Computed example of a mutant assay.
Amino acid sequence: MASNQNLKNATIAFLVPLPSIIFYLTFLNNYHSSITNPNNPSFFSTLWTWCYHHPLLFANALFFFNVNLLFWLIGQIQSSHWMIDPYWTVIPVMLVHYYATHPLAQYDWWRSHIVILLTWVWSIRLTHNYFRREKWQWGAREDWRFTEMSQQYGKHWWWISFFAVYVSQQMFLIGLSLPLYIVHFVDMPLSILDLVAVLVCLSGVVIAYFADTQLHDFMSRNNKLKGLGKPVVPVLENGLWYYCRHPNYFGETLWWWGLVVFAWSLGHGWTFIGAFVNTLCLAYVTRLVEDKMLKQESRAEAFRLYQKTTSVWIPWFKSFPSEVKNKNA
């Protein structure tokens, strides 16, 4: 039964982006005649002309109808909003290729291909981590925060979920991906800032990969200990987790700020707004995660000590408050 549901969810996940893909390919095959014959008053001619002249609004329209509406409807049918999580890792890849192939795009070839390659590397890393965490299942569960919100809002969750789960994700992902848009609509030669951007992006991906791998190994070991009836280790304090409490969030944040540096090198530093808002949201999620840890009696005391001695996000050396020193004396 579980395998049938897994196959069903995988099929849905592969088919669900087809409306946007087909619509965009249809636009690419038909926009030229609409632009060269502006006196044609047909509906589709007007539509293709609008899509041609407004690439960013076009991307938002595709997102709204294909993700917000369609994903939400599927979520209502399945009573689970699981699909937005794996697609969080895929949508930026779709966006970067959309921006690169739009007829109005103009860009430096090297910068474009560097950014596309980096986006693929980021996506593969995050997708692998998602499915590894979910034990390679499609839609086995939704994000725990959505589950808590559904319990909080009760009978109103069916319509609140449209805004809380999907419209909010559109603002995040389109905002975060604004540097991908700038890279493909501003044509300037490479500069030293592009090298800085590459280093920041790669650092973010590498840090996030090792942090998530260390967390996965830690949880796997604890599950084995629990299965053997032995006491589990309450807090992960090895590897990158020795230097900060959320190195995975730090790595993810670095990635998005690295993209901002690409846009900054092209004179569009204003695109930092997406990365800034995402950083604030991750800070809020950090608080939720830590509150959840403190509610677990078996971990609360060890985690409070971890909080006192270890940096939150930015990797740094341990600090040992006087009460901790006295306790260890």
Rank of each mutant, 00 (worst) to 15 (best):
Q152F: 11
S322C: 12
I91F: 06
R299G: 02
V312P: 00
A302G: 12
I91C: 03
V67G: 03
V260F: 06
W241Y: 07
F65G: 05
W158D: 07
V261D: 01
A164K: 09
E323H: 14
G139W: 02
D217M: 14
H102C: 10
F210C: 11
V261R: 00
Y242Q: 12
A59M: 10
L288A: 06
G251A: 00
D85W: 03
Q151R: 15
S20I: 06
I182N: 00
A140P: 08
Q152T: 08
Q137F: 09
A302Y: 01
R245E: 03
Y243L: 09
Q296C: 05
V167E: 08
E290T: 07
E323Q: 15
Y99D: 08
A329L: 15
L62D: 00
L15K: 07
N326D: 10
T89M: 13
C244E: 02
H113C: 12
W316F: 11
N222D: 12
R299C: 04
F27P: 00
H97P: 02
S112R: 11
M171K: 14
P315N: 07
L56A: 11
Q169C: 03
F63L: 10
C244Q: 03
T26F: 15
L28T: 05
K318R: 13
E297W: 09
I22T: 10
T309K: 13
R133F: 15
M83A: 06
Q5H: 05
R133N: 13
D143I: 09
G239H: 04
V260D: 01
T119M: 04
W82A: 04
V121M: 09
I116P: 00
S203N: 10
W50S: 03
H97W: 05
F163E: 04
G154D: 09
F27H: 02
G154I: 01
Q5C: 04
E134V: 14
A13V: 06
W241H: 06
R145N: 12
L47M: 11
N68A: 08
I207T: 07
V285T: 13
P189F: 10
G258H: 00
F185N: 15
S191H: 12
H53C: 03
A61V: 11
P86W: 03
I314C: 14
H268N: 12
W257T: 07
V232S: 07
T253C: 14
G258R: 02
L199G: 11
Y209W: 14
Q307K: 10
E323C: 11
K224H: 11
Y242A: 15
F262H: 03
S322Y: 08
K292W: 06
I77K: 09
S203R: 05
L193F: 14
S79H: 15
W110K: 12
W255P: 00
V167Q: 12
W144V: 10
A263N: 02
T127S: 13
W256A: 01
V233A: 13
V93Y: 04
A283K: 07
A100M: 06
D108S: 10
I207V: 12
E252I: 03
Y31N: 02
S311E: 09
E134D: 15
I314V: 13
E297K: 14
T279A: 09
F185H: 15
L282W: 07
V285D: 07
S80P: 01
V115H: 01
W82C: 01
F27N: 08
D212C: 11
